[in-house]
Simulated assay, not measured.
Amino acid sequence: MISAIIVNYHSHLLTARAAASLLADMPGLQVLVVDNSADSAETEKLKTVLPSPVECLVAEENLGFGKGCNLAFSRARHELVFLLNPDAYVLPGCLPRLQAFMEQNPRAGAVAPLVFWDREKQWLLPPYQAPGPSVDFVMSCALRWPWLGGKVSHRVRRQILHHCTSEAPFARTMLSGGHLMLRRAAVEAAGGLFDERFFMYFEDADLSRRLGRAGYHLYVQPAAHAVHEWLADPGKNPLVEAGQRIFLSKHHSRSCFPLMGKILERVFPSPQLPASRDLEIHSPFLPIPLPRGEKGPWIVEISPHPLFVPAAYCLKMVEGGGLAGGLVPRLGPGDYWLRIGTAEAVVPPTYRLRIEKREIHD
């Protein structure tokens, strides 16, 4: 059997949906929910909507994601433990397929499903690349020399398309903690679940690195599917940056790349954004301007980064298709880049989309 962990923070309806998806996929599953809200009213709402088999652990304060998961991990009864974000849910067959993979691959320390942005599975959220100061330096260089930016962006795109159109499981050096099955023995060999110095963000990068050092491998099982209603919210940036600083201090304190990056930014202070055309949005539906007179199938990417790292991918965009109304509100204020092309297109046409500050509903 499997134990599952969800950390709630003022999102009782989403958490209840996530828990229900787990129990529907695997009845009898142990589901532990940690309420980090530190709010008695939210706790009561949460307990009211959670399915009855769920165990609710109420924290006296907001412990953060990592520490909250650790609390539940200490109560988990089974060898396999599945972590799930409250704004995510599994699709039928996800847990049994991940479990079967772990049972067939004893050196797998963790496995993740293929993750989509929407229930219709039109938009794919590929797994992140492992972070590090060398990656940051290359990306900084790529933003200053367009020829290098094109090479880096195309290489990442080609790798993602290769993996995410494959039917076979594929290895990764990092997996997101938002939808992740772990082997308890591997976690213990790696020194425990999450380092509690990480309040939120980069704790999964740290765990992935420790699992690899302990001799375990990380995989994505594309036969298992989940949905993550990821929200691009600039308000997250301070927490992301704080987690990144801890990660770099812990694993890359002697790296020369941060200093090289500062020198680069001083000598070449202004990044050169890729050539793009502005695209306006006037409704909750964003139509995708497919090239005329050319044959698809069309692949569309949307990203908050001009080099499309990371990005959401639609692998088969059809004429008249676009970013549906349920997805547009998940784009917080800021600039986004949209790229359209075929699998063979080296430099697909790029558009820039600006979303002004507005109220965002989760």
Rank of each mutant, 00 (worst) to 15 (best):
residue 125 L to T: 08
residue 152 V to S: 08
residue 92 P to W: 15
residue 97 R to C: 01
residue 85 N to P: 00
residue 138 V to M: 07
residue 156 V to I: 15
residue 151 K to W: 15
residue 155 R to A: 15
residue 97 R to V: 00
residue 123 W to F: 06
residue 137 F to I: 03
residue 113 P to L: 00
residue 128 Y to D: 10
residue 84 L to C: 02
residue 111 V to C: 03
residue 139 M to I: 13
residue 104 Q to A: 15
residue 87 D to Q: 13
residue 123 W to Y: 07
residue 144 R to P: 03
residue 155 R to Q: 14
residue 105 N to F: 13
residue 155 R to C: 06
residue 145 W to S: 07
residue 120 E to C: 04
residue 156 V to D: 04
residue 105 N to G: 01
residue 141 C to A: 09
residue 136 D to T: 07
residue 104 Q to H: 05
residue 151 K to M: 12
residue 124 L to G: 04
residue 89 Y to Q: 12
residue 92 P to K: 15
residue 144 R to W: 11
residue 87 D to F: 11
residue 138 V to Q: 09
residue 147 W to M: 05
residue 149 G to I: 07
residue 151 K to N: 04
residue 115 V to R: 11
residue 93 G to T: 06
residue 124 L to F: 09
residue 148 L to A: 03
residue 119 R to D: 08
residue 101 F to S: 02
residue 90 V to P: 00
residue 100 A to G: 02
residue 90 V to Y: 05
residue 101 F to R: 07
residue 148 L to M: 07
residue 118 D to N: 11
residue 153 S to D: 02
residue 105 N to P: 01
residue 116 F to P: 00
residue 133 P to F: 08
residue 122 Q to I: 03
residue 99 Q to D: 05
residue 145 W to Q: 10
residue 101 F to T: 02
residue 140 S to K: 07
residue 150 G to Q: 13
residue 132 G to T: 10
residue 138 V to R: 15
residue 110 A to M: 06
residue 145 W to K: 12
residue 92 P to Q: 14
residue 147 W to F: 08
residue 153 S to P: 01
residue 132 G to M: 06
residue 92 P to H: 15
residue 146 P to C: 07
residue 117 W to Y: 14
residue 124 L to Y: 10
residue 89 Y to N: 08
residue 92 P to L: 13
residue 144 R to L: 02
residue 147 W to N: 03
residue 121 K to Y: 03
residue 151 K to I: 14
residue 121 K to E: 13
residue 128 Y to M: 10
residue 119 R to W: 12
residue 128 Y to F: 13
residue 108 A to P: 02
residue 87 D to L: 12
residue 119 R to T: 12
residue 127 P to K: 12
residue 86 P to E: 11
residue 118 D to I: 01
residue 126 P to D: 10
residue 131 P to K: 15
residue 106 P to Y: 13
residue 138 V to G: 02
residue 86 P to H: 14
residue 100 A to D: 03
residue 92 P to N: 14
residue 127 P to I: 08
residue 107 R to F: 12
residue 146 P to T: 14
residue 95 L to C: 03
residue 118 D to M: 04
residue 114 L to Q: 14
residue 97 R to G: 00
residue 106 P to N: 14
residue 119 R to C: 02
residue 114 L to H: 09
residue 122 Q to A: 13
residue 156 V to A: 10
residue 122 Q to L: 06
residue 110 A to E: 00
residue 128 Y to L: 14
residue 108 A to F: 03
residue 113 P to Y: 15
residue 127 P to E: 14
residue 123 W to C: 05
residue 87 D to I: 13
residue 104 Q to F: 01
residue 107 R to K: 11
residue 150 G to C: 09
residue 153 S to L: 11
residue 90 V to T: 07
residue 95 L to P: 00
residue 101 F to P: 00
residue 104 Q to K: 11
residue 93 G to E: 05
residue 156 V to R: 14
residue 130 A to Q: 10
residue 134 S to D: 09
residue 126 P to I: 13
residue 153 S to V: 10
residue 141 C to R: 15
residue 127 P to A: 05
residue 92 P to V: 13
residue 125 L to G: 04
residue 117 W to L: 09
residue 142 A to D: 06
residue 123 W to I: 06
residue 98 L to N: 04
residue 109 G to D: 01
residue 86 P to G: 05
residue 139 M to A: 13
residue 96 P to M: 06
residue 84 L to Y: 01
residue 137 F to K: 08
residue 104 Q to M: 04
residue 103 E to T: 10
residue 147 W to L: 08
residue 110 A to P: 00
residue 88 A to F: 05
residue 89 Y to T: 09
residue 99 Q to H: 12
residue 116 F to K: 05
residue 82 F to R: 05
residue 98 L to Q: 04
residue 141 C to Y: 08
